[in-house]
Design a protein around this nucleic acid. Structure first.
Lengths: 338, 338
DNA sequence: GCGCCACGTCGTAGATGGTCGCCATGGGCC
DNA sequence: GGCCCATGGCGACCATCTACGACGTGGCGC
């Protein structure tokens, strides 16, 4: 690889002049500029970003720490982030934490070691001290989707509580009596908020919450399946509707229902949180609380860009709205005899 | 951020000794080792990877250039890559080329500038000279999924031709008469190979290929939709089966069929290439040619790791097998009267 | 007309943080 | 007493950026 000195020698100028030409700083005689550019082209010179980063004390890499690259929720978000990063001349380093706090803090360490320009994280633990390493070391951070109290950073969230309340209210209004809830790990803010929304809907309707119909699982397919099975196997009458707090668990729950021969929505209605990819191909089509995932990614990335540009600005928190998409899985089957 | 010199001063040794302790190279007195480690802990020292990379002339970043983060085919592959990279102590930089040759070569430039340890690419163009920049600059490369002739690098492919032939043969054996094919952009090896497999099946069955039933689209949902529409609108009898050469186009085609009220498989049978996420929830369930996507990612990553460790080893090419998963969309409806 | 000042332009040199080759030192063993 | 090995420190090196200083030229003022 040619270095800036090779170019300088070739163009018969100093390395400083080459640097000035390439970075557009200071002023350089047009003749020399031309000679430099010609030398660059001839040698196929490409500046060494590592050396540049060291000297400038900053890189153009953004770490994006999420818990599952395979979840369409995150990929859509990553896409939003990538588009903004790319426009800002930055690259995205993808870190898969796998909902594993160890891996997560490992990646925080990597981001710090690599002097990354910033971090966008969807936390899967609540280790405040790990997260605060970042702002404490002067590394800009934006939290997205999930919230951890006591971390000094910007955040982009969605209105989970309202979304869940709207979904549950919809089921109540459809006349369902025993509405179950499969929520996520208690340590995750999204799970807590969605559960709160579920409760709020009952309160608003003046109805009591049946605690035996609430199950906390792990936001994964298998967990959703097992929670659904547990609900069906529990003593007492089975639920006639279920609100599932994320997309993977929705799939698991549906598979469980299919295994048991329960028909949606005739035997049991279902509303899921998060979008399902290619939802229109799934039968019955699933009523979901849709999140603006791409926009979440964009918003987080823009917040990060702003904070990098201006580290001292006040912390901000942005909350995006969800949309209830009513489809076939939650509409009362028309009674056979009216 | 503390530097190695701060640690050295704190432990009252030289920076070289700190470096030796941290890297386990050379031998250091246990007493000093202890003092160094204590200083590291006390200062919260974290080595500056940028400086290290500059000095060592190598980084621990792998660029992964794919065309669509949102396509489950790629995310599963990325997951495979990430798992291997993580085990090797490397991080993955995700680059979304969006099937855009400009973006793709931009990212190749970034990988070169950032002195990345290696590149895994699923090419969306056939600009041989762009790709060869990498091996020519001594940057290890592995091509995955798609092939570009004349590029000096390792590759991991799947047996597209055989997979497509198997799928088409299955439709022939089911007794379908007018089997259409929606393939991808001609410049992509996968599209060409899958089309060849389709033709092979007819040849093997001793049947002619009806060229009017072949459409090339863009591997995207919209393209699949429009190609399906064009097939239905064409003069002459409509096809009674269709082989669609990737997952996104399969979705598009199914949506088109739904719009037109054509029932799968009664009116038209369908086989898709690539896995569909949560395929079990889709009704009717779709017969697909399944690729070992996670394994493809793993294989590519392992190949990359080997080449990084041993740049002079001979070029290798690995081909993985596909599996035909027969589901409901391609099975002859049982005749009403036997 | 001459001299000084200001500005444009360019090169030198130091800084960035970590690694490692080489050399010096000291202690132990033969 | 001499040799060898363990250990530690110095300084070069990686490629780039940039502060500072130097040089030259042009313009303006006296």
């Amino acid at each position: 690889m040619a270095t800036i000195y090779d170019v300088a020698r070739h163009a018969d100028v100093s390395a400083a002049t080459v640097s000035r030409v390439l970075n557009g700083r200071g002023s350089v005689d047009p003749t020399l500029t031309e000679r430099v550019l010609a030398a660059v082209a001839e040698l196929g010179y490409r500046r060494n970003a590592v050396a540049r980063n060291l000297r400038k004390q900053q890189t153009s890499l953004w770490a994006v720490i999420i818990s599952d690259v395979q979840n369409p929720f995150f990929t859509s978000m990553v896409r939003g982030i990538e588009d903004v990063a790319s426009a800002a001349g930055c690259s995205v380093v993808l870190c898969n934490s796998d909902e594993n706090p160890e891996k997560e803090s490992k990646y925080i360490g990597v981001a710090l070691s690599e002097q990354m320009a910033g971090v966008i994280i969807s936390p899967s633990s609540d280790r405040t001290e790990d997260f605060n390493l970042l702002p404490d070391s002067g590394c800009p951070v934006v939290m997205v989707d999930r919230q951890v109290k006591g971390v000094r950073c910007d955040s982009v969230l969605v209105d989970n509580e309202h979304g869940a309340e709207e979904a549950t209210t919809h089921l109540i209004e459809q006349g369902y009596e025993r509405i179950a809830c499969i929520t996520g790990p208690r340590r995750l803010s999204t799970a807590a908020q969605r559960l709160r929304g579920y409760r709020n809907a009952f309160k608003a309707a003046g109805r009591p919450v049946d605690e035996s119909l609430i199950r906390a699982a792990d936001f994964r397919e298998h967990g959703g399946h097992d929670a659904m099975a547990a609900l069906l196997d529990a003593a007492g009458p089975a639920p006639d509707a279920v609100f599932v707090a994320n997309n993977l668990m929705t799939v698991g729950a549906m598979e469980c229902l299919a295994e048991r021969g329960r028909v949606i929505p005739d035997d049991i209605a279902l509303v899921g949180f998060d979008e399902i990819p290619w939802a229109d191909l799934v039968r019955p089509s699933i009523t979901t609380v849709e999140q603006p995932t791409y926009e979440e990614g964009r918003a987080a990335a823009e917040l990060l860009a702003h904070r990098i540009a201006n580290p001292d600005r006040a912390l901000t928190q942005q909350t995006l709205k969800t949309t209830l998409r009513v489809r076939a899985s939650s509409t009362r089957p028309t009674p056979l005899s009216p």
